[in-house]
Design a protein around this nucleic acid. Structure first.
Lengths: 210, 210
DNA sequence: TAGATTGTTAATCGATTAACAATC
DNA sequence: TAGATTGTTAATCGATTAACAATC
């Protein structure tokens, strides 16, 4: 493993999909697959699969192919699904609540350890086994617990200030559902954006233009 | 407008972000902007902005720049936010419920006209002003209403069958939140995937490797 | 050993950036 | 008119695909 020079984000963004398909193959009892067969299933080229995998090392065997469950585990390890990152979620509205309950954090190497909201009425309630805390206590909590990731389900206008507070207590990775682009105001942070309305507009374009 | 040869998806996927930033500028009372200024705000190159916009036509004026609200409107029109696409949502669990309540469909040129679930206990309940219908009546409803888009918030194992039923009644555009890749089994459909667990894994990689 | 399939290098393709002439 | 900034062509960069020698 690990000839990791600098892996391009295009490659990284394909890894979860490999991981998913390999999981399905593994569940179906398939133990061995060639790049050609996998390419066919995933609608990719065999070349791309081999190139992608070889960014990280030689996981295959010439003349044979790849061991499905072994490869899956390797990719999982690269993605960090075997780590246990501490995650906090901010904003327990519709979306935040749904994410807390719907996302299998464990499966992605995460663990939800805190939920914050500004609404005093829901303070103390539990969501997915985690208590909702007043967002006023955010810094206190983060200083003590040192979370790795913050999930942002907050309205656009408060998000920037929140990120400022979070970077202040050394939280530097964000799963951003807020209608706001963190990257333009902050450096040296890791952001994965899920801009749902952008996504819907892209779909809308597709509907009109096909 | 419309020198649209074939626009690359890279360009399309940037449009909602332009739309968003231009909206903010417009709200801030800024009426004119140059590609250089906009590039600085969005952390892009001026070149890219001009290239992107010129896929669709000459929206600027030499020596002056771009009219903010006019450009915003043009991009909105390209994305179809001024259309009124009929949307149905399938799967009123945590995520589906949250989306129905949280997403401003109107803003993206959509209109939620139906919600379906297999759970008889919630049948008849209302969500965002829309009644929940038994998924058994899906075909009947679609034949009558001809929705343009289906939002899929269903578990992975039932999604494929649902898509088959939906394409059968001529629904061919999908906003897919299900842990399943529609594209590999169906052709001639439009899909926008929101694979949340993939997204979280990509973030997890970023946390480990920066 | 022969056949299959990888790992890897080379060729192609597409997307981004730079440069500049056109023009407001 | 002079200055600014676009629209567009050319150059660069990166990602994907093809080819093939290495090897199981």
């Amino acid at each position: 493993m690990s000839k990791q020079g600098n892996i391009s984000v295009s490659v990284i963004r394909r890894l979860p999909r490999y991981y998913r398909f390999l999981g399905e193959l593994s569940d179906a009892g398939i133990s061995k697959i060639s790049s050609r067969e996998l390419a066919e299933k995933m609608r990719l080229t065999a070349s791309q699969i081999r190139q992608d995998l070889n960014c990280f090392g030689g996981f295959g065997q010439q003349g044979y192919g790849y061991n499905v469950s072994e490869l899956r585990q390797e990719i999982g390890h690269i993605l960090g699904v075997d780590s246990r990152k501490k995650v906090i979620l901010i904003g327990a509205g519709n979306l935040g609540t749904a994410l807390a309950m719907h996302i299998d954090f464990e499966k992605s190497g995460c663990r939800l350890i805190g939920i914050f909201d500004s609404n005093k009425n829901i303070e103390g309630q539990e969501l997915a086994g985690v208590k909702i805390t007043d967002v006023a206590r955010l810094e206190q909590f983060c200083s003590a617990e040192q979370p790795d990731i913050a999930v942002l389900c907050t309205p656009k206008d408060v998000t920037k200030d929140l990120v400022k507070r979070l970077t202040g207590v050394n939280v530097r990775s964000f799963w951003n559902f807020s209608h706001y682009d963190i990257n333009v105001d902050f450096d040296d942070i890791v952001v994965e954006n899920v801009h749902l309305s952008d996504s819907l507009m892209i779909l809308s374009y597709g509907v009109n233009n096909t």
